[in-house]
């Protein structure tokens, strides 16, 4: 439950909450910003970044590599057809969120 919001009211609360979360399958964590933003990549790159066609897959790649690639597209340091135009739509922080999510997909 790594994306559970931070707790401020002491260990006891945390313990109770942890117990609740563990006990209930209904209590799912908030959808992460990375998951929401990365989902927009999937229209072209396939669900979970697993492409079935000519467009490259983008899952399971180390986050550092994804971040460097996106920034290179954004700064026009790496040639592409459409990715230069897409990459310019994202801040450094957003690229990190997306890259972290994609890198963890098995």
């Amino acid at each position: 439950m790594k994306s559970t919001p931070p707790l401020r009211s002491g260990k006891t609360t945390a313990a109770v909450i942890a117990l609740l979360l563990a006990a209930s399958p209904l209590a799912q964590a908030e959808i992460s910003r990375g998951a929401v933003m990365a989902s927009t990549c999937f229209a072209c790159h396939g669900t979970d970044g697993k492409s079935t066609g000519a467009i490259p897959s983008i899952y399971g790649i180390p986050a550092d590599s994804l971040i460097a690639t996106m920034k290179a597209f954004r700064e026009d340091l790496r040639a592409a057809t459409v990715m230069n135009r897409h990459a310019k739509g994202y801040t450094d922080e957003e690229i990190v969120h997306i890259a972290n999510y994609l890198s963890n997909i098995k």
């Binding site: 066609g53 135009r85 994202y90």
Partner: peptide, 28 residues
Amino acid sequence: GAGGVSPTDVPQQFRTQEARYAEGWYAS
């Protein structure tokens, strides 16, 4: 600053690549 259309002065290879990606886009 983001988005826009394909560049105008590019070699045919660029158009061919976007045609292959059009098919890839449809598949995905």
